[in-house]
Nucleic acid binder design. Structure first.
Lengths: 202, 202
DNA sequence: GTCGTTAATGAACACTGTGTTCACTTGTGG
DNA sequence: CCACAAGTGAACACAGTGTTCATTAACGAC
């Protein structure tokens, strides 16, 4: 039972890390060139100079490569840029207030090509829907204390959360597509105020 | 030049109308069953009992069938349910105000299965992006008189329009997915106020 | 450095879906 | 009634997917 668990959390074979990195880079580049839907596995392999069987030994599909990239893709935006995942527990900070969107916009700003590949007009809707439902959940948790328990209240809470998430996505995506001419701080502030205003009107 | 243009707007071969109608119905049913992305042309043909060559003599692809259905699909929501397509011309009614979203919600309510197939979680993003950019344009035209001509102003106008469109989509889709427990009139009113409030805070 | 292990290679394969063609049959409108 | 337009279904070429396997190369532990 006291067996060595091999603290190999970081000691992954160099070859694997290299392969995964190259595959991610190839995918990002190809998405920006021709749009996610039009990118084939074949093209990724050619661009990355990686064998077909190698690809399938690491990922099950194109979607997985996009979503499960070790640090390159989804994780960076989902990870610490996560706006208020915590539930609206009693006394939790920020309860009933809009989440802080600054980490999200900062992360996007730090990874423009990546962010555009995942969220922009050339991207597929794979990551889009992930982020959207993630935002919806986060926002709903923040504001649920403002709504009652009647059926109607539950509906409205859900609709306002969905609308707020769509609002944030709209801000984020159009800003990305313009290559971020406005500082992320301004975007986050405006975005937070807009969400707060939306719920105030509820 | 004064040639007869054959007022055959309605006199289309019965066979054609029947074929197109059956194909649309089959597609809608299949989308609701297994999601747009997972529906193949083959399945549509089997369900509709239509020959492969017949399909391709009418449509170029699955997407076209979804978007260009004569009256069955896109047109119904894009047509008269169109919220304020008109530009924000001087003196035009509704200038600087939020569009009236009632027709949109009413149309959706009148065609729940269709609307869910085109916009719901099972739908692809084909029609979604169409509607989103359509809404963005319509809203931008309504509010552009409130913004100045500096570069910054143009950016903000675009971002707020994108955010407002996302907001409307969020309301609409979550309401659709709940099978519309709230009357469309209420949704439209709340939606309009939310958009107006968003731009007021700008 | 040696050596057992692990990853990468690339070609072959079966499979599914797409879009086209064509000779043929059936339904329609005039 | 009949000329013509529409539908049929099978065959085809093609492109993409995901798997398998024998072979080669790189790794890292000692």
């Amino acid at each position: 039972m006291g067996r060595k668990v091999r603290e190999r959390m970081e000691t992954v074979d160099r070859r694997i890390r290299k392969t995964k990195r190259i595959l991610s880079e190839a995918l990002i580049a190809l998405i920006l060139e021709k749009g996610y839907e039009n990118v084939t596995v074949r093209e990724i392999l050619d661009r990355a100079n990686v064998g077909r069987s190698t690809f399938y030994s690491h990922y099950e599909s194109k979607d997985q490569l996009l979503l499960a990239g070790p640090q390159n893709l989804g994780v960076r935006i989902f990870g610490d840029a996560d706006p208020g995942t915590g539930p609206d527990a009693k006394g939790a900070p920020g309860r009933g207030e809009a989440p802080d969107f600054l980490p999200l916009f900062l992360h996007a700003a730090d990874n423009l090509p990546l962010a555009k590949a995942m969220l922009g007009r050339k991207s597929g809707d794979v990551f889009n829907s992930h982020l959207q439902s993630h935002l919806t959940r986060a926002i709903r948790d923040r504001f649920k204390s403002r709504f009652g328990k009647a059926k109607q209240d539950k509906f409205w809470l859900r609709y306002f959360s969905g609308a707020a998430a769509g609002l944030v996505m709209g801000f984020l995506i159009s800003w990305l597509e313009d290559d971020m001419p406005i500082p992320p701080e301004d975007m986050a502030r405006v975005c937070g105020r807009a969400v707060a205003g939306l719920f105030k009107a509820a």
